[in-house]
Amino acid sequence: MSPITELVLQSTWETVVMVFFSTLFAVLLGFPLGIFLFVTSPRGIAPKIVPYQLISRIVNTLRSFPFVILMIVMFPLSRVVLGTAIGTEATIIPLSVAAAPFIARLTETALNEVDKGVIQAAVAMGASKRQVVRKVMIPEALPSIISGITLTIITLIGYSAMAGAIGGGGLGDLAIRYGYQRFRTDVMIESVVIIIVMVEVIQFLGNKAAALVAKYPLGSFGRSKKVK
């Protein structure tokens, strides 16, 4: 194997590791936060104004941070959690922190969009608030949450290209260091093609997963038409 091929493989692996773990942590953090936002919102099923406003503000603040700045701001946290602020592992922390609020908001939105009639039906059958959320709203919102997570993964692939700034490596870093700075156009093209393939594969799998949980009829393009 030529050194360049080895480098490309190594960088691909780094990107996969960064994106996989940051998605995992972002979902673990963002999904419960999204449910919390939905439940406690002023129009939610158990409004709690102060905690809602607090979490909502934090989410908005984190979402408005430019990612390059967020990476630097997260240095102390990375040192506490991992003992280092540079390298592939260290990049996972700012990536997770950047994606979690996004997942929280999209979970909240997906839950808000569940048909009110369906909720009414569940309440009429004697479901408690907890049962409504757990047994009705989350399953009903799941297809749209999965689509949102797919979108997040693809955004994270883009963000991970900036990881080079803190020594995270990955395909974006490779494209800049070899493709641009050393005029290796072939490496640039290879990196970009691999990223494109990754995005395509993730989009394909995400669509499949969403369709599977949505129980679409085979061959249909979307959800059944709503009867008005």
């Binding site: 369906v118 009414q120 039906a121 009429a124 059958m125 004697g126 399953p139 297809p143 129980k215 709503k226």
Partner: peptide, 21 residues
């Protein structure tokens, strides 16, 4: 009330079935 609701059936204009089930 929630216990009572099991004695009450309800159907709707838009059916309100769970599309995830």
């Amino acid at each position: 009330l929630n216990r009572r609701r099991l004695e009450i059936g309800m159907i709707f204009q838009n059916f309100n079935l769970f599309s995830s089930r």
